[in-house]
Simulated scan of single mutants.
Amino acid sequence: MSRVVQRIGVLTSGGDAPGMNAALRAVVRKGIYHGVKVYGISRGYEGLIHGEIQEMSIGSVADIVLRGGTLLKTARSQEMMTPEGQQKALDQLHKHQIDALVVIGGDGSFRGAQTLARGIQIVGIPGTIDNDIPGTDLTIGFDTAVNTVIDAVSKIRDTATSHERTFIVEVMGRDCGNIALQAGIACGAESILVPEIPYDLEEICDKLKRGHQRGKNHSIIIVSEGVGKAYEIGEELRSRTGFETRITILGHLQRGGNPSALDAVIAASMGGKAVEIILANETNKMTAYVNQVVVSRPLDVAYGERRPFNQDLYELANQLSI
């Protein structure tokens, strides 16, 4: 039965990603534009369980569109994984008379949202730098993270060239090598190691030696964190080739910073689309960026088969780094 939505809640959950604030801003202002009250929930599900909920205004999201991180903060919540915690969260939503909840985060955040679907409308906005959510071509934060890696590698290459060293650069991606692949091919890395494809250390050593024989005395190797410990890989390469190696672990540097223009636009579009979905009285949906358009898709799509790793791009990277 159709009903009038009067109050929307919004939270950010899981790892922060550049562009989350742009999505939040769009949810708040699009909701207010349509006469709906919007409530921000601090610290993700942990804050929801403890009632950290306050009404947002147009001014409360001013000047955040290009700010990194998340204005609402984020936190992991073990309690939300229990039936008791889920009931507490639902009780808080009912207490504040919230009709619908927008969750900005990854698939784990979406699973938490679905436990509340029995009593409230749910819409997910995919925000994670890993770009590992099925059903969408891009997730909020991925483009920025890749550009952060490229910027860092550009600086590292200057030092690698000056000192004639091989640098191992570890990037985020425990189970997904998208950041390593995109950044690696964009910055011309000599080798890219990702969790999706087994690597041959001897083959990497041979490539380094061939480069050295033709006068190339520096190299960049990009490693996803899920492949193995960068220090161990670097030490093994040094012992096999005799080349001086250095390790740089970019870590949480990749999550921070202002969102790229692409991330900011996608985030704003997804935030606006989330409100449209709610006003249409739809639930258990997610926003998705498909063929350069933001669309609505069933939330279950986020738990489906992951988009295949781009083997063609990976092979191209290998061919270009001969």
Results as ranks from 00 to 15, higher is better:
Lys37Glu: 14
Ser77Tyr: 08
Thr148Ala: 12
Gly257Leu: 06
Gly105Glu: 02
Ala183Pro: 07
Val265His: 14
Asp143Arg: 03
Thr136Asp: 12
Lys88Ser: 09
Val36Lys: 08
Lys88Gln: 10
Gly226Leu: 09
Gly68Pro: 15
Asn310Cys: 05
Leu181Glu: 04
Asp300Phe: 14
Ala302Tyr: 04
Ile64Val: 15
Leu253Pro: 08
Tyr231His: 15
Ala100Pro: 07
Gln92Ala: 09
Gly68Ile: 15
Ile266Tyr: 13
Arg306Val: 01
Ile192Asn: 04
Thr12Leu: 06
Asn284Thr: 11
Val27Cys: 06
Ala113Tyr: 02
Gly40Pro: 07
Gly35Gln: 03
Arg165Asn: 07
Phe167Tyr: 15
Val153His: 05
Ala180Leu: 11
Ala267Lys: 02
Asp300Thr: 15
Ala268Asn: 14
Ile221Gly: 10
Leu262Gly: 13
Ala113Thr: 03
Gly211Lys: 10
Asn310Glu: 10
Thr159Gly: 00
Val265Cys: 14
Gly135Gln: 02
Val27Ala: 02
Ala280Trp: 04
Ser321His: 13
Tyr231Pro: 10
Tyr231Leu: 13
Pro198Asn: 10
Ser60Leu: 10
Ile185Arg: 12
Ala302Gln: 02
Glu225Ser: 08
Ser60Ala: 13
Asp16Arg: 04
Leu201Tyr: 12
Cys205Arg: 03
Ile278Thr: 08
Val5Arg: 06
Met80Gly: 07
Gln182Cys: 12
Ser260Arg: 01
Met270Glu: 15
Ile49Tyr: 09
Ser321Gly: 12
Arg246Ala: 12
Gly215Ser: 09
Ala230Arg: 04
Ile185Gln: 06
Met20Tyr: 08
Val149Lys: 03
Tyr199Ile: 05
Ala189Glu: 00
Gly272Leu: 07
Ser224Glu: 11
Gly108Pro: 03
Leu90Thr: 05
Ile32Glu: 00
Lys216Val: 14
Ser13His: 02
Arg25Glu: 06
Asn147Ser: 11
Val275Leu: 08
Asn318Asp: 11
Pro298Leu: 09
Val27Met: 01
Gln121Gly: 13
Thr248Met: 13
Tyr231Ser: 13
Leu250Arg: 00
Asp312Tyr: 12
Glu46Ala: 05
